[in-house]
Design a protein around this nucleic acid. Structure first.
Lengths: 187, 187
DNA sequence: GTCTATAGGGCGATAGAC
DNA sequence: GTCTATCGCCCTATAGAC
């Protein structure tokens, strides 16, 4: 047995989610989270660049999931279809990593806090850019790639909203397919 | 002549843009900006909710510009076309309020600073939501409205990037039209 | 305007793992 | 010995309270 209890990071992640749900993000200090996890405030900031980041770390990078999904496709798949395949892969990842209830709890905390919404939007933009880069790498013009990635991002957002909604479809992948169908009918 | 120099807010806006460009956002404190503008730090925070906000205030609300543009359309205009009309109106507003060079300077500062990118994304998301609400108000289903707004947001982003790029088209409205054409060809 | 709590960075010390 | 995680203390800037 080491000098410290193991899995300090895991304890901080759990403590943060609990405290944010109990008393709100703004009323919870980094020190509160550290205390409940049995570490010092300074240790918290060594693991997470800032207080918000504790809600946005995961075992895998969604950017990489999206990029890999596109790399696995044949060269003849058109840009929009490739972008949609990428968000479908990301949805599958998230759907496997969390239950619908966990995702809904986290989403309600994020939705209630502007600072957290900002961070969520940055992560989403990062995914959109990863998809854009992957499409450009396959030969798509910049504007085409950017628009395809943006459209796919819209599908992801719509599907996620439906998935975590009160009377939502319990299968994230199916939500993606439904939103894709609506997109195809749009224009 | 009053007790204070007039237009404190305008001086703070100018000072912030200068200092951010000269020494970077992170190396510039709110006190630095206030000092150059000839006011106290406290005055700075009375005008702007936080340090980032000084780069995101404007004479008009872009949400309202988008909403009004949609309200001016006939009921028979389909959702995607209405959303595109909204971002075209926003682009016209921005194109009139700033020169291409001013917009490019500001964009390069924002792009270089994650904290500012987050705020920019929040403003963009706010516009997207305003468009979504306006479309739902016209009878569009939630998913259709959200996807149309997202697609239009992608067009706006692509057009803006082109407008402020080194060898960009000097007319923002034309950039919007070009990106719209690419979107129509996408699916 | 002043006062204060919180966010978040810097750095050396410490104790184990290897 | 080196490497890594943690502590503990000091610091400044942000931003809200009074």
């Amino acid at each position: 047995m080491g000098r410290w209890e193991p899995d300090a990071r895991g304890r901080m992640l759990d403590a943060a989610l609990e405290l944010f749900a109990e008393q709100g993000y703004d009323n919870t200090t980094a020190g509160d989270i550290a205390a409940r996890a049995g570490v010092t405030e300074r240790t918290f900031f060594r693991h997470f660049a800032d207080k918000r980041e504790v809600l946005f770390v995961g075992p895998v990078s969604l950017d990489e999931v999206a990029t890999s999904a596109i790399a696995a496709l044949g060269d003849d798949v058109p840009p929009l279809s490739a972008a949609l395949a990428a968000v479908r892969a990301v949805a599958a990842e998230l759907g496997a990593a969390r239950t619908r209830e966990q995702a809904a709890t986290r989403a309600s905390i994020v939705a209630a806090t502007p600072a957290l919404r900002e961070r969520e939007l940055l992560k989403m933009a990062s995914m959109t850019e990863a998809i854009t880069r992957a499409l450009v790498g396959r030969g798509a013009p910049q504007t085409v790639a950017g628009l395809a990635a943006h459209n796919a991002g819209g599908v992801f957002a719509a599907a996620f909203a439906r998935w975590v909604s009160e009377d939502g479809e319990p299968d994230f992948a199916r939500c993606i397919d439904d939103a894709t169908e609506v997109l195809r009918q749009l224009g």
